[in-house]
Design a binder for these strands. Structure first.
Lengths: 218, 218
DNA sequence: TAGATTGTTAATCGATTAACAATC
DNA sequence: TAGATTGTTAATCGATTAACAATC
């Protein structure tokens, strides 16, 4: 995804290192080398050490890093000490998939409520509850929500974003395939599945062509 | 999604320009300026012209670009002249959302079949049909499929990828939150929702902190 | 001690932006 | 012609990589 999103690629990598470390820990590892992390995340070991040095994380020369300690430090940097409460707008197919997805909770991210304009989708007893769109602003204010996910159709996304921002949301993850106009102090991030596929199509085609032109040599 | 994906960020942008142009066209535009495209995609107009020049696309000095013609050229570059047939493995919540999603067809991308190991999910009459996982390799070979989407749990993703590649798939879009070991002539792309959210959490936290430290000034 | 690994400084690479020339 | 816009060359910026010093 490349992509089109927030700068600072090393933050994404820190999350990836952290996830790899958690897997290493379940395997019983006590220490790791930058090489292990590099392999697991698909970067070079220099990259790993460089990223760590950016945040003052140091290991033991010759002895690698202590898994437990490193996870702790990374969680601290990434702000993962407390569960992040996020809201979701749009209870369509994708929204439902996100609500049902267990992977988020594992990362300390909890969808605390979903909102939709379709009255037939409202279900206040569900977990997370699906509430009427009109209650969005009040809910955000009351619960101090800082992060929202948008999974509504393209033509509704901008309005949803504006309501979120007006109520105090500071970070939006937008699945609608459209650029949102934001305000200065809100960070907007995108996941655009069409775009990812189109990109893949282009590179697959390009590869096939270049192979043909080279007359079948690799 | 920043990020973690294929290089060449301008290809993603070309898709974005193309999408914007399609919208302009429905609004009745006959020509556009690089400034219009820049605004709509969220880049500068120099970026737009630079990207075009990379592919030998030129407009009319003083007169902008003809919408129709530009769409044509971009579609040509992006390989969008014929419908792209892709397959999907994993008919869980996310997989189902992808099958139901109309946005792909609009972009000339068609999920022609889905595969799952759970017998209760098989439905050969559905559109797209949901077939047994054992039929994956044969289907790919018979239909010359080049692109596959993986939406299975983390621990199954590598096996699925290997089966796909062995049958001739050259591009994979992976939704499982794990790095896949690939082969030389297959391009692997990632969409990782947890990672996007964790990234957002970090930057929202960072912003809040920096605001506090500056004593409330913007 | 020698070897393996970390951590940092400098070089390289690629992408974006600035400056400006071309021209309708 | 003057003004607006395109298109290109050069400068800048940031991220990655190479080289190497430090040290357990």
């Amino acid at each position: 995804m490349n992509n089109q999103n927030l700068g600072k690629p090393y933050i994404i990598r820190l999350s990836e290192y952290k996830n790899a470390l958690v897997r290493f820990k379940t395997l019983g590892f006590v220490k790791v080398f930058s090489d292990n992390l590099a392999d697991s995340v698909g970067v070079t070991s220099v990259q790993v050490r460089k990223d760590f040095s950016l945040f003052g994380i140091s290991g033991n020369r010759r002895g690698g890093y202590l898994v437990e300690e490193l996870i702790e430090k990374l969680n601290d940097i990434l702000g993962k000490n407390e569960t992040q409460k996020v809201i979701l707008v749009g209870a369509g197919h994708l929204g439902t998939a996100l609500m049902k997805y267990k992977g988020l909770e594992k990362e300390g991210i909890k969808i605390v409520a979903c909102f939709d304009i379709d009255p037939s989708k409202i279900n206040k007893k569900a977990d997370p509850p699906i509430l009427p769109f009109e209650e969005l602003i009040e809910f955000i204010r009351k619960n101090g929500i800082k992060i929202g996910i948008i999974s509504v159709p393209e033509n509704a996304a901008q309005e949803v974003a504006e309501k979120m921002m007006s109520a105090g949301v500071k970070g939006i993850l937008n699945f609608a395939p459209i650029k949102l106009r934001g305000i200065e102090d809100c960070i907007i991030s995108y996941v655009n599945i069409e775009l990812e596929l189109e990109n893949l199509v282009y590179f697959v085609n390009a590869m096939q062509k270049s192979k043909k032109n080279k007359g079948g040599s690799k």
